[in-house]
Design a protein around this nucleic acid. Structure first.
Lengths: 228, 228
DNA sequence: ATGTGGATTTGAACATGTTCAACTTTCAGC
DNA sequence: GCTGAAAGTTGAACATGTTCAAATCCACAT
């Protein structure tokens, strides 16, 4: 059985080297084309060593996901500290997602599928990836709370999670996007982020009050009740 | 290279037998636990023969998908021919999806992930599975057009595809549902189908005119422009 | 310095999806 | 009924993710 964290300096070095080689190879050759043997070979360790630190190839994907999240968070930090307009913050954040992930576009399909697999421990809805998902959701909470928009409390409560889900949808679209410079995705982002902000303000209309309560109640119920 | 369709009577028999064994084993043991060797063994043919008719294990999933679609279509035929109320038609149709798929609940996660993989030829957005997707979308077109609801043309045009997408979301939720009798999913279906019908009627409000046009325009643009 | 116990490393072995070249069966045309 | 080409069948071989028992390394107490 693989361990979770290295206990010695040598172990730390090995783990980091294996992870590095894996991230490089994923980018160079894609997920499927990167074999566990090639990772071990590039690292300069034996095949078995990789499994000492990462229980499976899938678990390397989790680190990959964490890595891009860190890049993304760093990329948007200046925007979030300067900009106050919600639509601008949201557009910049989502644009940064696809810009950050651009080097991994070729791998993204396999990664996405791996992560979306409900049977996988990496699934963000319940496996070991939940902490990382929570971190990303928190990022969207910051996008909202750092803006000057006045969001009703019931919406504000569920909005970060919804924005995370929305981001996943954008990523899925982006994976299929073959347009030059991925312009198509950027157009869709600009239009949808603007629409989202518009819909949030429309949600305060009295005619929509009933549906809004029902929708938010449903979401809350789904999120808060255990299992599924 | 595998062939697409048997040319002899013997070939037809073999193909059908292999498919049968595969569907049975998927149900009995799940997708991963069903090996190509076990399929061949149960069928009474050699390993290589399976690959003569199905280029990969994934392609067997496509047939599995087709199979459940046929069960589903048959299950809702009476409802669609008798009922006129849109909400009732929609609720019955979506409920029938999860009821039909219930025997395959344990396999569904792997199946879903396989189908959702953008790199897979089975992906409904562009691979060989597109014809089958179109068939399912058509089913939702029937659900809508056979009702007595008056749907504005711009909405009616995109609604079937949106309902197909919605159905996928419900299936994903259902995969995670561990509640007894999958009651949780049924509750969510009842609430969401009702909400959908309500939102469709709200969409005709003058205040929402602008956003509605933008949303439908965006969807149409995404669907009709080639690639992504 | 030496022994010890845990951490780390190793590589052979295994399971399984996939490929392929050789072999066998089928059947349409004579 | 014969024949040859097309269709179907076979099983060995390969690639790759994963497991595991044995070997090695290393920090530390004695």
């Amino acid at each position: 059985m693989a361990i979770e964290v290295p206990k010695t300096r040598r172990g730390e070095t090995s783990r980091a080297a294996i992870l590095n080689a894996a991230l490089d190879l994923f980018q160079e050759r894609g997920y499927e084309a990167t074999t566990m043997r090639s990772i071990a070979e590039r690292t300069g360790v034996s095949l078995g060593s990789s499994y000492h630190y990462f229980p499976s190839k899938e678990h390397l994907v989790l680190e990959f996901y964490r890595h891009t999240h860190e890049l993304h968070a760093a990329a948007i930090a200046p925007l979030l500290s300067r900009e106050k307009d919600l639509a601008t913050r949201l557009r910049g954040t989502i644009r940064a997602v696809v810009v950050t992930c651009e080097p991994f576009h070729a791998v993204a399909g396999s990664i996405f599928s791996t992560v979306a697999n409900p049977a996988s421990p990496l699934n963000p809805f319940g496996g070991i990836a939940k902490p990382l998902r929570d971190e990303v959701v928190q990022l969207y909470a910051d996008v909202v709370s750092g803006s000057d928009a006045r969001i009703p409390a019931d919406i504000a409560e569920m909005l970060p999670l919804m924005l995370w889900l929305y981001q996943m949808g954008i990523l899925y679209f982006w994976i299929f996007d073959r347009s030059p410079g991925r312009l198509r995705t950027l157009e869709v982002i600009d239009e949808t982020t603007d629409l989202i902000v518009r819909l949030i303000s429309l949600a305060s209309l009295p005619v929509l009050r009933g549906s809004r309560k029902r929708i938010l109640g449903l979401i809350k119920d789904i999120v808060e009740r255990p299992q599924g």
